[in-house]
Design a protein around this nucleic acid. Sequence first.
DNA 1: GTGGTCTCCTA
DNA 2: GTAGGAGACCACA
Length: 996
Amino acid sequence: MKKGDHLFLIDGSGFIFRAFHALPPLTRKSDGLPVGAVSGFCNMLWKLLTDARDTSVGVTPTHLAVIFDYSAKTFRKDLYDAYKANRSAPPDELIPQFGLIREATRAFNLPCIETEGFEADDIIATYALQAEATGADVTIVSSDKDLMQLVTPNIHMYDSMKDKQIGIPDVIEKWGVSPEKMIDLQAMTGDSVDNVPGIPGVGPKTAAQLLAEYGDLDTLLDRAHEIKQEKRRQAILENADKARLSRELVRLRSDVPLVLGLDDLVLEVQNGPKLIGFLKALQFTTLTRRVAEACNCDASAIEAADVKVEWGTAAHGPDLDAVEPEPVAGGIPDVEGAAVPIPATAKPAGKGFTPAELAKARAEAFAALPFDHSTYVTIRDLATLDKWIGDARATGLVAFDTETTSLDAMQAELVGFSMAIADNDKNPTGLKTRAAYVPIGHRNGVSDLLGGGVADNQIPMRDALPRLKALLEDESVLKVAQDLKYDYLLMKRYGVETKSFDDTMLMSYVLDAGIGAHGMDSLSEKFLGHKPIAYKDIAGSGRANVTFDLVDIDRATHYAAEGADVTLRLWMVLKPRLAAAKLTAVYERLERPLLPVLARMEERGITVDRQILSRLSGELAQGAARLEDEIYTLAGEKFTIGSPKQLGDILFGKMGLAGGNKTKTGQWSTSASVLEELATAGYELPRKIVDWRQLTKLKSTYTDALPGYVHPQTRRVHTSYSLASTTTGRLSSSEPNLQNIPVRTLEGRKIRTAFISVPGHKLISADYSQIELRVLAHVAEIPQLTQAFAEGIDIHAMTASEMFGVPVDGMPTEVRRRAKAINFGIIYGISAFGLANQLSIERSEAGDYIKKYFERFPGIRDYMDSRKQMARDKGYVETIFGRRINYPEIRSSNPSVRAFNERAAINAPIQGSAADIIRRAMIKIEPALAEAGLADRVRMLLQVHDELVFEVEDADVEKAMPIIVSVMENAAMPALEMRVPLKVDARAATNWEEAH
DNA sequence: GTGGTCTCCTA
DNA sequence: GTAGGAGACCACA
């Protein structure tokens, strides 16, 4: 290198962070790999190499190197233990890009430099000073203030994002001091991001002012007693040592041992085809074209390179974005010595496992690792508890489970908790686990009049709870649980808000929806080859069953510690599988963040007016009794009307009516449709049976059952949502199911009037209009449908008009009804049989309709065929956000099983995408309301697949409604721009019936 | 008491 | 034709 040469040093790691935060709409490859920073990097490089004169640098490099941080552990860590201790793991989307930018650098034929124990900045400093000594000019491509100390007349910085060159005047303008004083300035101000202490209370302005006055840090510290301002003087005197330490932390080293000398950095001629191969692999089409033009290559003749994806690179499914993930929640904790063998950053090529390899290694290792109950311990004293919690902190990972008195998280009392820890034995498959149980509220069953006595040798709740709280709320420790929503809600009732978590049930759900169950026992048998102790074996069952607080502590330890151990091992197996299957984004954006949202909804509950229900129940009882008498008279005898068997005998045996169907077990079917037909044929009895059934159904399932769910303390009804019990991604609701409250009949709707807001409040119901048909229009790209939705036309009438040639104006309701049934049929994976049933028409006629429909909307047939094909080829289909739904039986040799799976595979992307959209809305809505100052004033209570119900203070209704509507209508964005608009209707009233 | 079947409520 | 949960009845343990 010589005078006149120009060395460019690119801060590769810095570029990634900068580009990541500066380019919000994430760019992704079609398979979901995030490549925004890589794209920016390649464009910037290309520009510097070819037409740098167009940039503010104004000169093309003769030498160039890209510098990376090697690892978090550097000599600075030895100087100051807490250095960069505040750094959390980089965002997940960013991780794969570290490896890819290294790949890109190699594709550009450029040296890629990193040295163990040093930060990129030190390497840059070393090269820059060496180059300057030869008389060459240097441009450091970075805008990091830590590098500004290097700026001289010959060494410039270049902010490639802003296309701005940074020289001495720019540093002075920005910081008020010349570059050589930047070290002293940073020593005083410190850096909260890197955890450089500095002097408290001294920011850039004060520091610059002090340096102007005293010249440098040493002089300042010597003469600090002269400072007039009392507070400032004291701060400086007290923190002189910290300032000196900080100076050593921010001072860049210029003596890094270098493998490549300056002359090794000389720019080589580009290898056009190699670069094009790489750019094509990443789908950077514009740049590919430019490079091809520049090197006279035919890009179409060059194959996309097989870009080797490193650690964690495949961690992402399709584009999911903008829902802010819970802070650090469930990320891999960046803790020294963490037991988690998945590294937080990309590893150099050739080292370690790919996610798929790790997943395989873990699966094999844990399938064979036996469970040893003798190692489980009972923790009965605080010292041991503190030791375990300390170990959890040190490893950054703990599996956790609660034991309680009830399956109902709203009523359960904490009896004890268990923990499992993986010890870091440097074994990448993380084979060593240990577990413990902490009894807190066990009773010995020796009951007096006040109930059982407290068992001996337990840590009292008042001592255990604060420690448990500290652990669960510690963001740097990842808590792993199976079905965490239960524990989350329970602990929330004890004033604990769990932060940083993973849920093995949800991980299994994302990975294997449609394949087996996701409960702990079945997962354990499936992945660990181990059948855990059954609850009923320690607590008994039936009449002999006892609550957990009465279980003997030793037996409880076996059960509870094993549960935590199983959970930890499942996590070890499932976590790398998520990355390998590119499902991390689905898990982190659609599953995990919803868990606390649902827990809050369940905790809030909804008020149900028991008087209304009781009155309705009486009315229903009267109506049913009257019908019973009439039924007995018509039948000529008394019988159990509710027994389909007896009823079938009466109708089709004794009375000998014709037109009966048989169920699959050979019984007479007495379903409503059969009875309706008989009624239409003129028989009185079936009509009355249908009416009787409606009344008794409403009475037993709703008016009589709901009051039993009113919580004794809150006086509200708290349903439980399941995140993982449907195959498509929908939620389900149980105990009670509040997703099937009647709405279709007048009688049924009355039940909704019992769901009320508390005084001074309203219920707001907001529901998506035709969301599944809109999703269909989007995924199948049907022009007529998209257009109709864009114009707000009646979609069923449009369908009817297309199919039957009837004008929309004055269309007979029967025609529209048929079109509507066909539209729904399409969503359900239509069959002539099903449509015929629905419309009570002949199979052949239904078949004609379907044929006609496909002629009119050929895109629908293509869509359906493509879903069936995908399910056959891959075994799964997916939603627009990348959720996978598996159909392991799609290739069954049984035609009806196969057809069933095909219909489900057609329906799942539609139903599941709609479910994903409302999930996104639910996750976004609380932050949106909080931003409007409505946190806690607008409370989301219920979800009914396409509807959300809120309870809102009267004064906030007008303000809340547009926010709710807007969040819901825009829920798909910015991850996805839909081809059709989403429409949401919202209403407020004091009860659910009027609000809906 | 448990589990299967039938029926019916929702989106 | 898709996806659920739940109550009543009834046979079996």
